[in-house]
Every structure is written in structure tokens, then in C-alpha cells.
């Protein structure tokens, strides 16, 4: 019951969704639309459950006094403020929007902007042309880096003005992205897509069942 029914459900929904897409018959399309509706109905529950899991994690942190557990109260303060105003007055309430714009936006944007500093430091310390492959990586990175900003073309057009080729930095960047990068990415896409399809078949046939987890 706990293991077999999910496997049967997975098989059933997988097969139905796969085959109804090939059949334009009205009954087939009705089933296809209805099953997608089911998924849409279930999706918000998954999203809310995800947030509950996070709350549980912080409750556990406080209960077990895990290092920096006091900060979990800050998590709850933020969560309750946002959720209280949001649920009570709706997401278009000026107070909710104000909190989003003046607290969440700066926190989110600043958190990720830290990486600009860390990338610069890491590039200085670790970005070395030790091998042929590393040299290729470094050269491509530097060309794209400098070709991405207008100063790249300015330097090219000033320093290499004797070349019969203007805006070389951005042109070379574009060539790298549109040729060798494209080939490598396409290889990855083809490889990953084949992997996705084989994994999907394994899931439908019940060969891959890790999502069921352990136990009975």
C-alpha cells in the first residue's frame, strides 16, 4: 500500500500524459487537460508544504539550541510579519509591498552581490593557466569578460587601431559564445536530454524509485 500504490500511480499518470499528447481525439485531450488541472491543484500544496518544512527546521534549531539558534527567532519575526500582513490584507497591500521593496529586495540583491567581491578575489588567487585546458578556459573567460563591457571595444579600437577590424572585443566575445561555446552547450543539452528521457522512462516503469524513500 505504502510503496506499491505510488508506483502504480506514477506509472499510470506517466503513461497517460505521454500518450495523450500524441492523440488529438477529444476524449484524449479532455483527459490530458484534466490531468494537468490535477497537477495545478496539487502544486500550491507542495509549495506551502515546502515552507512548512523550513519552519520545522528552525523550530528544531531553537529546541536543540544548535549554534546561532537565537537567529531563528529573527527568521520567525520576518516570516510572521510578512505572512501576517500578506495573508490578512493581500499581496497588493501597500504595507506588504513596502516591506518587500525596503526589506526583502535590498537583502536579496545585496546577498547575491557579495559574489562580485568573492569572484574577484577567487580569480586573483586561483585562476591560473596551469594546463592547456585551464589556459583555454582563462582566455575565453577574459575575452568574454572584457567583451561584455563597452570599454573592451574602446581599448581594442585604441590599442589595435592598425587592425582592419573594429570592435574586436565584442565581436570576438560574440564569436566565442556563438561557436565553440554553442557546440559545448549543445553537447551538454543533448547529453542531459537523453539522460532526462531515460530517467523519465525509469521513473514511469518503477525502476527508479528513490522518491519513495526507505521504509515500507
Amino acid at each position: 500500500m505504502k510503496r506499491q500504490v505510488p508506483l502504480v500511480l506514477c506509472f499510470l499518470f506517466g503513461v497517460v500524459m505521454c500518450f495523450t499528447q500524441f492523440s488529438p481525439h477529444q476524449y484524449s485531450q479532455a483527459v490530458y487537460n484534466e490531468v494537468i488541472n490535477w497537477a495545478l491543484i496539487m502544486a500550491p500544496f507542495a509549495l506551502i508544504f515546502g515552507t512548512i518544512t523550513l519552519i520545522q527546521t528552525h523550530v528544531t534549531r531553537i529546541r536543540r539550541r544548535i549554534e546561532h539558534w537565537q537567529y531563528s527567532f529573527v527568521v520567525f519575526a520576518g516570516l510572521l510579519t510578512m505572512a501576517f500582513i500578506g495573508i490578512l490584507f493581500g499581496p497588493q497591500d501597500p504595507a506588504f509591498e513596502w516591506l518587500f521593496n525596503n526589506v526583502q529586495v535590498p537583502l536579496d540583491a545585496t546577498m547575491f552581490s557579495l559574489l562580485a567581491f568573492l569572484i574577484a578575489s577567487a580569480a586573483f588567487r586561483a585562476f591560473r593557466a596551469r594546463t592547456f585546458e585551464a589556459t583555454l578556459l582563462l582566455i575565453a573567460a577574459m575575452i568574454v569578460l572584457i567583451g561584455n563591457v563597452p570599454v573592451g571595444d574602446l581599448i581594442w579600437n585604441t590599442v589595435l587601431s592598425w587592425l582592419p577590424w573594429d570592435n574586436g572585443a565584442s565581436e570576438t566575445r560574440q564569436w566565442i559564445l556563438g561557436n565553440p561555446n554553442l557546440s559545448a552547450r549543445r553537447g551538454i543539452i543533448l547529453g542531459v536530454s537523453l539522460g532526462v528521457i531515460s530517467q523519465a522512462i525509469r521513473l514511469i516503469l518503477g525502476i527508479e524509485r528513490s522518491y519513495i524513500g526507505g521504509g515500507d
Partner: peptide, 9 residues
């Protein structure tokens, strides 16, 4: 931590 809380809220 405030960021995490606000995001969840």
C-alpha cells in the same frame, strides 16, 4: 536570517 524569514513569509 531576516532574509530567510521574509522570503518564506
Amino acid at each position: 536570517h531576516l532574509f530567510v524569514g521574509m522570503s518564506v513569509g
